[in-house]
Amino acid sequence: MAAAKRRGAEALVLERIGRVDDRRVLSGIIFINRNGLRWQGAPSEYGPPKTLYNRWKRWSELGVFARIFEGLAAGAPEPGTIMIDATYLKAHRTASSLGKKGGRGRLIGRTKGGMNTKLHAVTDGEGRPLRLFMTAGQVSDYTGARAMLRDLPPAKWLLGDRGYDADWFREGLQDKGLRVCIPGRKGRKSPVRYDRRRYKRRNRIEIMFGRLKDWRRVATRYDRCPKVFLSAIALAATVLFWL
């Protein structure tokens, strides 16, 4: 009963003051995510903080930001080279406390660096992200590689570091018609030949991760819900690389 009265009061207020423009709210959401502020810290020009937070949560749960990123990335020209790698994103204590029961959980794991989440990504030859996948921090890079192998964009070459040196992964890439440029692990009995000159271009995916981490809300995870946190990453990737 109380909740119904509250919703009715909020609807009445919105009717009187009018709905805040979505573009204005989106600018506020970008401002908060880029600077890692509390929602109460948003300048008044972007609208009420509660409005910013409510639409951020609603749009994130609906997958709006992920669909925008996927749509823009899918419209890019077919890349000649793609790259794969992963990075750690630190989880703040507000995100890692009170673990969720059941389901996939919050995708937060414990490593030597503390509580974190691992972001797996596939980019084009210029370092622009094409695919994103998230796991708990302690999960192997092979898990991300296996998940993204089925949906790799068409290309001629794939570049990766020696963390992706696995026979099943190389065979899967070759079945897709991709030429592999991945150095062999040090423990291999027989060395693996790869194009060293082409491999030097792999630093572009490292630069991409660095630019994503310039957004404070990406570098440090405050969101408990993994879908909301992935929305923050997708929003940052869209603004930085596809707009």
Rank of each mutant, 00 (worst) to 15 (best):
A2H: 13
A2N: 13
A3W: 14
A4D: 12
K5N: 12
L12Q: 11
L12N: 01
L14W: 03
R19H: 06
V20T: 15
R24Q: 14
S27L: 13
G28F: 02
I29M: 12
I32K: 10
R34E: 06
G36H: 05
R38M: 07
R38Y: 01
R38H: 13
G41E: 15
P43S: 07
P43Q: 10
S44L: 11
P49R: 07
K50D: 12
K50G: 15
L52D: 01
Y53A: 07
Y53C: 10
W56I: 01
K57P: 00
W59Q: 07
S60G: 15
L72F: 13
A74C: 06
T81V: 15
T81H: 04
D85R: 10
D85F: 09
L89S: 04
L89F: 06
H92I: 04
S96R: 11
G99V: 04
K100D: 00
R104E: 14
L107C: 09
G109F: 03
T117G: 04
H120G: 05
A121K: 01
R128V: 14
L132D: 08
F133H: 15
M134C: 03
M134I: 12
Q138Y: 10
V139N: 02
D141C: 04
T143Q: 13
A147N: 05
M148E: 04
L149K: 08
P153W: 02
W157T: 06
L159S: 06
G160V: 03
Y164K: 05
D165Q: 03
D167I: 12
W168V: 10
R170G: 07
E171A: 14
E171D: 13
D175R: 15
R179E: 11
P183H: 07
G184N: 08
G187Q: 09
R188C: 04
V192Y: 08
D195M: 03
R196T: 11
R202E: 05
N203K: 07
K213L: 11
D223G: 03
R224T: 11
A232P: 00
A232Q: 14
L235F: 07
A236S: 13
T238D: 03
